[in-house]
Structure formats: C-alpha cells, structure tokens
Amino acid sequence: MGNGMQSTIQGRVFKFGDNVNSDIIIAGRYLIYIEPEELAKHAFEMLGEGFPAKLREYDILVAGRNFGCGSAREQASTAIKGLGIKAVVAASFARTFYRNAINDGLTIVECPEVYAAVKEGDSISIALADGKIAHAGQEYSFPQIPPSVRKILELGGLANYLKANATTTGGA
C-alpha cells in the first residue's frame, strides 16, 4: 500500500445530514485557491459561527445521502483534507465529489448503516483493506472501491498516479 492511504483510520466523527453541497463545503469565492491549508480556512464557513474551527477537533466526517452534491469543484475535497479530516463516511456521495476525493487522495466510504448508527463525537475505526467499520462494539461492511480505481487513492491521488505512470501516458 502506498503512502497516500493508511490501512486503518480511526477517530472521532462529526455528523452532517443529507445533501451537503459543495458550495457549503467551500464557497465559490475561494476557488481562487487550490492549496489545502488556504481552502481549509474557509471550509464550511457558510454554516456560520464556529465553522470551520470546530471541525478541526474531529478526524472523520459522517454524512447522509448525496454528500458533495452540486458543483464539480475539486476544492471541496481539498478543503476537507486541509482541515485534517482523514476520511468521509456517507450514506451516499454525489458522483463528482466521489471522483474528486479519489483524485485528491481523500478516503471515502459509502456506508448508510454507519450514518444511521453514529452520533457526533463517537469514535469509529475504518479497516480499509477489510472493508469494515467498527463502532460501539458493532461491525459494519462497506463496498470496496474498484481495484483499478483504488490504485489512484493508494498513491495519494491522481497527480501522483500520473507521475508514477508517466511512461504509459501520452506525453509526460
């Protein structure tokens, strides 16, 4: 396994509801940035007082259906990484966020059962290779990312993947 992906991710969760859109994650006015640190300063600030500062106290975001819907802005996943969040577990993801997270090297897990079970501040442990999440003595399974796509995540994102595969690409 490459440097971009830990085999087990554990920590405290912050919980969101359904349809968290990418405008909420990072507003359009900050798309002038691509650096994780800069984006993180403004992540979720549309939610008002306390954001994003309070999210820095958590390790994992848990959300309901359709996380990251709306704009295809890649900075949504970059901003979450910049906050120090190690993984996002959601009941489901919007497809653009799903792709961007993989391309950005942010671990994402689709698991509606965990969304239903956890509450804010709970600790969970994600065993990536096994496809299991442990929470409060229970174990939940999640579908693995397809192996061909998983390579991108394992290398820490698409830019690293492209560098590593430079000889097989058109020009790099």
Partner: peptide, 19 residues
C-alpha cells in the same frame, strides 16, 4: 456530457482517457 474536477481534466489532456 458530464462533470469532472480540474486534476482529472489534466489527466484527460495528457492521457486522452478517463475511467
């Protein structure tokens, strides 16, 4: 037609393809 992020656009620019 479908949307992708900017890194993936670079990938298509260079490799011509995407999954």
């Amino acid at each position: 037609g479908t949307g992708i992020g900017y890194t993936e656009v670079t990938s298509v620019w260079v490799t011509g393809k995407l999954w």
